[in-house]
């Protein structure tokens, strides 16, 4: 019964999303044909631009560049965020030194580091680094907060089996913090696509952000729309993927 209901739910969701999108495009079309401004091309013009870019290979090539940067940065942020979050919450030195350091450096506007990072790391790695730095915080902070409240009973259980500190981390802390970690990652991912635009439009070395910036200077209005839509689609897709995984994990536990 549950299965059937769920299938129906997904179908319904899809229907709502499709209907909303059609309505949005229709409104856009009406607005574009009514006002006839160069900065508001019709959906058809944007789709034609997307098609052209796809055929020439520019779209795929630059989407892959952006994806590679975002994924590398997120993997770095996830590794460092998880490790330092665990250290900051599960060790005495960590909670005295690392925890205040993480919390104190969190409100810095890290995007402003881009020019300095370019000097230190070069053009390519500065882009990855700035995304990593910004996405590190939601991951590290949610790890830190969740890892300090692991249920005592589960830890006692592993301790009574003679488990070491490492066993505690593997069998209690990590499984317990996964929902928090996924929430942190979800926030991190949506931020990552915003930051990648800023990073890629600073010094143009490929990527969707560079394409947007470049098309903007050439006053190629449909192209700007086309690449913004591509970047947005990437963001929405990643976010939804993590959210689905998160829901599936929670369903198994509670």
């Amino acid at each position: 019964m549950e299965q059937v209901k769920e299938g129906y739910g997904i179908l319904q969701d899809l229907l709502v999303v499709t209907a909303t999108l059609i309505l949005l495009f229709a409104l856009w079309h009406v607005a574009a044909t009514t006002f006839e401004k160069p900065y508001l091309p019709t959906p058809a013009q944007v789709v034609a631009e997307l098609h052209k870019s796809f055929i020439s290979g520019v779209l795929v090539e630059n989407t892959l560049i952006t994806l590679r940067r975002v994924v590398t940065a997120l993997l770095l942020a996830l590794t460092l965020g998880l490790l330092s979050g665990l250290l900051a919450s599960r060790t005495i030195i960590g909670s005295r030194v690392l925890r205040p350091l993480i919390l104190a450096t969190y409100p810095i506007p890290h995007v402003t580091l881009i020019p300095i990072l370019i000097w230190i790391l070069g053009v390519e790695w500065s882009k990855i680094a700035v995304i990593s730095i910004i996405t590190y915080y939601p991951i590290a902070i949610s790890t830190m907060e969740w890892a300090t409240r692991t249920p005592r009973e589960y830890e006692d259980l592993v301790k009574s089996m003679g488990g070491s500190k490492l066993h505690l981390i593997i069998y209690v802390v990590i499984p317990y913090i996964i929902p928090g970690l996924l929430t942190g990652l979800r926030i991190a991912v949506s931020t990552a696509y915003a930051v990648v635009f800023i990073a890629e439009s600073f010094v143009l070395t490929g990527g969707l952000g560079a394409l947007i910036e470049d098309s903007w200077h050439r006053l190629n209005y449909p192209a700007v729309y086309a690449y913004v839509i591509t970047l947005a689609t990437l963001g929405i897709t990643s976010y939804t993927m993590i959210w689905t995984f998160e829901k599936a994990y929670m369903k198994r536990l509670t």
Binding site: P151, M161, G162
Partner: peptide
Amino acid sequence: PQDNELLPWLSVYANVELPLRIA
């Protein structure tokens, strides 16, 4: 323990196996 005698994120099999893994 009185409550939470099993780890909720491990299957029944993995719960029973846990002390053996640790040992």
